[in-house]
Design a binder for these strands. Structure first.
Length: 433
RNA sequence: GCCGGGAUCGCCUAGUGGUAGGGCGGCAGCCUGCUAAGCUGUUUGGCUAGAAAUGGCCUUCGCGAGUUCAAUUCUCGCUCCCGGCGCCA
């Protein structure tokens, strides 16, 4: 599990990482507290040792059918009180240390560019020919064809919900099957995970800030009235914001042998996102919504294999967008934009003709041991136990891919061509509208 | 929802108010070669002594609390699994 030694052993890396992030973090405080804690722990252990020996003597006497004398028993009872007191003191230290450790962002990889916000991101390559179109955006196009209803969705569910209808809904299914078939052929194991996770596992896969901004909490109707009492309940459920989280949790507490790794998966699930911090951003259409389907790549790997898998995930994402014939670019996300969990993150951004901009379609992260340390995912290699590395990458997020397809395949007459790769999944249909 | 049984090392399994044992697998070593196995040790996490070889101590029987000098064992609460009954897409 996470402990101060984890920090002590990679102090230089951590220092460099925070310098790059340009943020303060109390990891020095952690080490100071740990020094104090260890002193306390030594005292406790010595007392325990004394108590254990005393208890053993009592046990020995009983075996010989003799009664231990009262003073001895009283002495041992006294030791118990001393231990209790010291342990109460230790709780202050362990509580603080745990909070520092659990909230500490991952150590950045050296390839992560410097930069305080998304303007620091570095484009690695650009593929395909962007074609600027003076045509309406996806929302207007789909509304006109009667394939999208935002208004009624807003009325019955709220803003950022939508009804996809007819060929648009079919296009979504086509994207899902196309992506699954492409990746299953490569040997990935398809996983349909639970859509809700307990808090104790959720906090192992993502940063704490996510709980407020991104996640929906599932409250049972019968419990909704007594919310204050529920605050104490630790087994409350959260709707997953990506199947990555549920598949990571699938490995929690497990020990693998090195030769079982890597394990490669594709997850399929709806994703639920509150988008609490994004008022006013992308309010038109279905680019940023509360709910969408996502096919996700996920892997558990040996430490030395994780960067090869990172490249593999990127290559898969590129292959999918190349097959869909959508122009894209690959971006290396900088220190200020990367978040807490990933050590390095590449985004694949598709060209959007109506906005004349590249927008995020895929996000590929090597989380190194950040999730594994919190979920206790290990492997045994030559008798040594190590934290595994976990990786995740979007394959296809349906709503965003639909936006990219509609805008790139829109014809002058308002109809939408179906990408060749998807036609077999659309009953051979070559055109929508 | 109700009743009963259960959770012990990576896997399987024994056990008891007083140092948690066995099998398989893994690791280290030894012996030996004729399709091949056998033997010995080791196998949770942490602290500590030492340059190292190697030691010492604590911790660990699903999770949390209680009783006790001492809890894996007894009591209470929780989570999960198995069986039966009820309800149900």
């Amino acid at each position: 599990m996470l402990n101060a030694r984890y920090v002590r052993e990679r102090l230089d890396e951590i220092r460099a990482s925070f310098a790059k992030r340009g943020s303060e973090y109390p990891f020095e405080e952690l080490l100071e507290i740990d020094e104090e804690y260890k002193k306390l722990q030594a005292q406790v252990q010595e007392l325990r040792s004394k108590r254990n020996k005393g208890s053993m003597e009592v046990s020995q006497l009983r075996k010989e059918k003799k009664e231990p004398d009262n003073a001895k028993i009283m002495e041992l009872a006294g030791i118990k009180d001393q231990i209790d007191e010291l342990e109460k003191k230790a709780l202050n230290y362990t509580g603080r240390m745990e909070s520092i450790l659990w909230n500490m962002p991952n150590v950045l990889d050296k390839e992560v560019p410097a930069g305080s916000d998304e303007s620091g991101n570095v484009t690695l390559k650009t593929v395909g020919e962007p074609v600027r179109k003076k045509l309406p955006g996806h929302e207007e196009s789909l509304l006109k064809l009667g394939l999208l209803d935002m208004e009624q969705a807003a009325k019955v569910s709220g803003a950022r919900f939508y009804y996809l209808k007819g060929d648009a809904a079919l296009l979504e299914q086509a994207l899902i099957r196309f992506t699954i078939d492409t990746l299953v052929k490569k040997g990935y194991v398809l996983v349909a995970p639970p859509l809700m996770l307990k808090k104790e596992y959720y906090r192992g896969v993502t940063a704490l800030s996510e709980f407020e901004d991104a996640l929906y909490r599932a409250v049972e109707a019968s419990e909704a009235e007594g919310l204050e009492e529920r605050e104490k309940v630790d087994d409350e459920l959260f709707l997953i914001s990506t199947s990555e989280h549920a598949i990571a949790a699938m490995h929690a507490g497990k020990l693998f042998s090195a030769k079982e790794l890597p394990k490669r998966y594709i997850g399929i699930s709806p994703c639920f996102r509150r988008e609490a911090g994004s008022h006013g951003k992308d309010t038109k259409g279905i680019f940023r919504v509360h709910q969408f389907y996502k096919i996700e790549q996920f892997a558990v790997a040996r430490q030395e294999d994780s960067w090869a898998i990172f490249s593999e995930f990127i290559a898969n994402a590129e292959e999918l967008f190349s097959l869909l014939k959508i122009p894209y670019r690959l971006v290396n996300i900088c220190a200020g934009d990367i978040g807490s969990v990933a050590a390095r993150k590449y985004d694949l951004e598709a060209y959007m003709p109506a906005q004349d901009k590249y927008r995020e379609m895929v996000s590929c992260s090597n989380c190194t041991d950040w999730q594994a340390a919190r979920l206790d995912i290990k492997y045994d290699e030559g008798g040594e136990r190590k934290y595994a590395h976990t990786l995740n990458s979007t394959a296809i997020a349906t709503t965003r891919a639909i936006v990219a397809i509609v805008e790139n395949y829109l014809n002058e007459d308002g109809s939408i061509a179906v990408p060749e790769a998807l036609q077999p999944y659309m009953n051979g249909k070559r055109r929508i509208g």
